[in-house]
Simulated assay, not measured.
Amino acid sequence: MDHVIKTLTPAARPSEAAETTAPSTLVRPSRAEAEAAVRVLIGYLGDDPDREGLLDTPRRVVSAYEELFGGYHENPADVLDRTFSEIGTYDDIVLVRDIPFNSHCEHHMMPFVGKAHVGYLPVERVVGLSKIARLIDIFARRLQTQERLSSQIVTEIDTVLKPRGVAVMLEAEHSCMSMRGVQKVGSRTITTQFTGVFRDDPKEQFRFVSLVRNGIG
């Protein structure tokens, strides 16, 4: 099994916002226009959009896309808006690993599927564990690259929670690489990004990776 490992440097907050927020001048096509576009695509592929089996396909495709790309209509900051301070003296790593996600490559609009591992070192407050999974879903349900998805998760947690450090690792298989092109089934891409203590202290990076891989640090 092949692996591609990429380590990212933190991105500035303004550029992240620019990449994830639709321009104010963008005019969203109507549902009818979207369904018509699907009909055109079916015809381009060489089939008849008016044959019985395909008559309702444009409606189904648009409905599916509304679900698959629902992250465009949710605000990630809202997911992390409620935190908890009753953590006693706890100040060590909080790690949620093996969070499944699915997204779509922005280059071919083909799925990539994998799992995320997210850790942070809290300062007085923590966020509900399910909120981290929800945050990943919001960003994943947009046209993406795995590198940018990693960066967006890190940046949002770092900005809202202001912890001593954030660590993120994503592992995914990209169908645009396994089903087309080089057609290398089983190849996985691994991306990591660190802020704060995790970025500055190699021992903390190693501990995060050890917890992800072995459950011990």
Rank of each mutant, 00 (worst) to 15 (best):
E171W: 07
S85D: 11
G165W: 03
T89K: 03
L135H: 06
L121S: 06
N102L: 13
I93D: 03
M110I: 14
E67S: 12
V185P: 11
Q183D: 13
S103V: 09
R142Q: 01
G181K: 02
T155F: 09
T83R: 05
G88V: 10
T83K: 08
D98I: 05
K162R: 15
V166F: 04
A116W: 03
D98A: 08
G114R: 01
A77N: 13
D98W: 06
V118H: 00
T189E: 01
Q146V: 10
L170C: 07
R148H: 10
N75Y: 06
A133Y: 01
D158S: 07
V182T: 14
R82Q: 01
P100H: 00
R164W: 04
K115F: 08
V168M: 09
Y90Q: 08
M110E: 09
Y120V: 14
E86A: 14
R164L: 15
H73Y: 06
I190R: 12
M177N: 11
S151D: 04
T83Q: 09
S130C: 10
L129H: 03
I99S: 03
S175R: 12
Y65C: 15
V123R: 06
Y90D: 11
R141G: 00
P76K: 01
V166K: 00
D98Q: 11
G114N: 07
L161R: 11
V96A: 08
I132F: 07
F139A: 00
F69E: 12
R180D: 12
T155N: 05
I136K: 01
V160C: 02
V166W: 03
D91R: 07
V160T: 11
L135W: 01
K131D: 02
S63D: 15
S85Y: 02
I132Q: 08
E124M: 12
F112Y: 14
V123P: 00
Y65A: 12
V123N: 09
D81G: 04
R188W: 05
G128I: 09
Q144Y: 08
I99T: 01
S150I: 05
V166Y: 03
S178F: 02
I136E: 03
P122D: 05
E74G: 01
V160P: 09
R180Q: 14
H174T: 06
Q146L: 10
A64E: 13
T89P: 03
